[in-house]
Design a protein around this nucleic acid. Structure first.
Lengths: 255, 255
DNA sequence: TTAGGAGAATGAACGCCGTTAACTATTGCA
DNA sequence: TGCAATAGTTAACGGCGTTCATTCTCCTAA
């Protein structure tokens, strides 16, 4: 699961990473810590983000609520830590889909987009927690975080790399370069800081454009915001996915 | 504000719409009812959807919480009613932007998209309530609702009409008609039921594609999900808006 | 004009919740 | 073996939605 929390209120009794083997106490501690998060996720899945409560977690674990404050500095800190784990879980699934899709960048993009949608539809509560409306408490928490450590960086990486490969192979059509330079270039510092200063603006554009389309479709489907218009959002998703990649290949691809 | 609640737990002591003039009691009732919703919105704006509480509303109004049950059957019902009002408010602002944009459909689409983004960015809490992650309680409430009365229908109307005008004027490029017929046509019953059986599939496609892109961009901006990549989502929005409408005109438009 | 009933609001209570503080039991190390 | 760090407890505070029995007020029908 690789839960490198990027910014958190996870209490660490022993200051940072170990060199020597973990003591018995440390093993117990990490096990309790992940049991808390497991229970939190169970509650999340059953009743949504608001259903995560310290008292319910403790009850289920045969503890009392204040004990959890030995592990997380607040409920918000726990939820934020869980969100970080879930973001990484999702990113790893997307990355795995890429690696299982052969060498063709277009096939890789399709595989990643479908993996993202499949995960999101299968895990609506988790999706809501990491990519839905942020809770004010969590937001206050994130204020103290470095954007460069945001899990979104790792999530975006396989997309960026694939699109970059695509761009190197053949120059797909984009908006006029002058327009992109003028409107977009000045606002890409975060992306450049985390993915390299030399990323071509055409790659950044294709990623941002594609990711926002992907997010919009999946988010609407997961949140049922298109029920009034469309009965099978999955079909719309496939149409749009094809439209998006056809933009790269210049022809229609059926796969 | 035109608050025709499409499905609600608003208690109506006097069964439906009046013919004769409202009595004194009825006037007091409607005034209290909207004062409750005003106060609920104030709390929403300050602290997000979770900050809406019956006790806080009552406290601010100089009442006690159980009194509110004379007006709404539960907190969820109140929140759902508020969400309905806000959806309509947003729809009216978008529709007004269209009417203030002259006769050119492309200009109208730009005006509506910008009005939607402006409203959303200016009202993040309201946006979260109506277009963010649904709260389980509210969802349970909506189960008993008719999709055909969903406020999204009216929200979509000016978009659908404008795109229809565009399609009648000139046949813009779309995915192959066969693909749309095969993948999309079968799943458009809700849209057809509310916007007419005869709506061309190219219009439905352009609307759904455009709306999901618009929603994705604005939602990401409002929820700060792109902070790790882009420092000014508004610039990305303008780029994408131009890319979207250029698809209709076939050339690049600067306005 | 007045009696009665409908409507509006209250207070108390139940069981949730996060969080704090004071306290106890346990563990592991010097 | 003793002591300090660690893990856990109980009790309490204030906030929450909701229910129930009760009170007050206003309108209407006799």
């Amino acid at each position: 699961m690789n839960a490198v929390n990027y910014c958190n209120g996870v209490l660490d009794s022993q200051g940072g990473s170990r060199l020597s083997a973990p003591t018995r106490r440390e093993r117990l501690r990490t096990s309790t810590l992940s049991e808390i998060k497991d229970e939190a996720r169970r509650l999340l899945v059953i009743g949504g983000p608001d259903a995560i409560s310290l008292r319910a977690i403790a009850r289920e674990m045969g503890m009392t609520a204040p004990a959890i404050y030995r592990y997380f500095e607040s409920l918000d800190a726990l939820v934020e830590a869980l969100a970080g784990d879930l973001y990484i879980e999702m990113s790893e699934i997307v990355a795995a889909a890429k690696h299982g899709a052969g060498d063709d960048p277009v096939a890789q993009i399709k595989a990643m987009a479908r993996a993202f949608r499949d995960w999101s539809v299968a895990h609506p509560a988790e999706f809501a927690l990491i990519l839905g409306s942020p809770q004010p408490g969590i937001v206050a928490f994130q204020e103290s975080c470095d954007e460069a450590d945001h899990p979104g960086v790792e999530f975006g990486r396989p997309f960026m790399e694939t699109i970059n490969a695509l761009w190197l192979r053949e120059r797909y059509p984009t908006p006029p370069r002058s327009l992109m330079e003028e409107r977009l270039a000045a606002h890409l510092e975060p992306l450049r800081a985390s993915h390299g200063e030399e990323v071509p603006i055409e790659v950044a554009w294709a990623f941002l454009s594609g990711w926002s389309r992907l997010y919009g479709l999946v988010s609407m489907e997961v949140f049922h915001h298109l029920r009034w218009a469309v009965s099978d959002p999955g079909a719309l998703f496939e149409m749009e996915l094809h439209a998006y990649v056809d933009q790269f290949t210049g022809h229609s691809d059926k796969s």
